[in-house]
Computed example of a mutant assay.
Amino acid sequence: MVSYKEILASNALINDSATALRVAVFVGGTSGIGKFTIQALVATGIRVKIYLVGRKSSRERTQAFIEELHTLNPKAEVIWTEAEVALLADVKRVCELIQSNESRVDLLFLTAGYAPFGTRAETAEGHEVVQALEYYSRMLFILRLLPLLSASDAARVISVLGGGMETTHLIDLDDLDLKRPGNFRVYRARPQYIAMNTMTLDKLASENPDIAFIHSSPGAVNTGNVRRGWDANSIVGAVFSGLVEFLTWLIGFSDDESGQRHLFDSTSAAFGGRGMPWTGKAGITTTGKSAGGLFLVNNKCDCTPNAKVVGQLREKGQEKLWDHTQILLGPYL
């Protein structure tokens, strides 16, 4: 475990001369872990431009948050970027906007999503909503912004979901979108989407060794999303959500610690050797190296390569998933 004291010490080194982080894109940064991380980043006092991508419904409260950030650090420029990122056409539009304004992106931080406890619901484009948020949208952001990430001296992509929690159980490689009758359940969807993230990020990391790719498992953090997906009148949903929120408050990370830990993930040289100096144990990728691959990072900021499971997923499903993803995202690339 990387202690919280070590985390704070590393983050305290971040300044305008020491960091190459100048342009960041946060997708899902209007609440939860994305919001906590933005706050921690801005509080460092560095000059940074942040594209904060969020839904129209969160615009009003997010404007107040942006004003707070400007007061905290006048050198930070936070640009509200409205989008329904479950829709791939909207993702394409946002990426084109960023591409037209920037020559590089140093950090792409992806957190949009929630646990799919409810019944299956699809977007107007025909994709299950949570899968669109947690997989297709995230991969489209990466692929569209890859040229800008490649132009950075120390680019990093972080997908916050369940890195290190991959399993070969309950994964259906013949029904990647879980469309078969009875196949969509939270206990199937969550491991499916985690595995899909890891398989594709593992491939992208191997092909883009100059970009640090991280699949993070955040642990217990009260993001406010545990109530999403349930029927508004569900008594079971209300009881379950209340219990989870209580347990999270009891044993989970505070908002501040979660933000600081993810800022460490975003800036420390522990992952790939570039970033804030790190004298502790170097992170290890899914291929057993210290750079040029995917880092699976748990809530304690330790790497958990999960080599056996990831190797099986890589062998049995990676190319199949990649072909499927390319076909589905093709119209938006």
Rank of each mutant, 00 (worst) to 15 (best):
T286N: 04
M276G: 06
I235Q: 04
K49M: 02
A307Y: 08
G275H: 08
L201K: 07
V157W: 01
E315W: 14
L173F: 07
I235M: 09
K320N: 06
I251L: 15
G182L: 04
R104K: 10
N208I: 07
N11I: 10
V157G: 01
A64E: 15
M1G: 15
T267G: 03
Y193K: 11
K281Y: 12
N15V: 00
A115T: 12
F109R: 12
T19S: 10
L170P: 10
I14F: 10
A232K: 14
R55M: 10
E166N: 06
D210I: 09
A83R: 00
Y51W: 04
N299W: 14
D106F: 02
R156N: 09
V25S: 02
C303H: 02
N225A: 14
L145M: 01
L13C: 03
F117T: 13
V48M: 04
R190N: 14
L72R: 15
D177K: 13
S100N: 05
R261D: 14
V130E: 11
E84V: 12
L263K: 07
Y332H: 11
P74I: 04
V2H: 00
K5I: 08
N11Q: 04
R47I: 02
N11H: 13
C301F: 07
S206K: 10
L110W: 02
G330I: 04
G317C: 01
F109V: 05
T167D: 02
R120G: 09
I158F: 06
A195H: 10
M199R: 08
E6P: 03
R138M: 06
A121D: 08
A155C: 13
P305H: 01
T71I: 08
G288D: 10
V42S: 06
R227Q: 11
L41R: 09
K179D: 10
V53L: 04
W322T: 10
A151R: 11
L247D: 06
L173Q: 13
L201C: 07
G32I: 01
H324P: 09
I79L: 10
H127I: 04
L133N: 02
T286P: 00
L176M: 04
A12Y: 12
G32H: 02
Y4L: 12
T81L: 00
T168S: 11
S290K: 14
S58G: 04
G29S: 02
D256S: 08
D16Y: 00
G317D: 03
Q39T: 13
E96S: 08
K92Y: 06
T304G: 01
L296E: 03
A64V: 09
G272V: 05
L250K: 12
A154Q: 08
D16K: 04
Y114I: 01
G32E: 02
G259K: 09
E315S: 07
E102G: 08
E166L: 07
D256H: 15
G126I: 03
Y193T: 15
L321Q: 11
T37A: 00
T200P: 08
K75S: 15
V2S: 00
A24C: 13
D106P: 06
F240L: 13
V130F: 07
D302I: 07
D210H: 15
A132W: 06
I79C: 11
L294E: 07
F141N: 05
V27S: 12
N225H: 09
K179P: 15
A270V: 11
F65E: 09
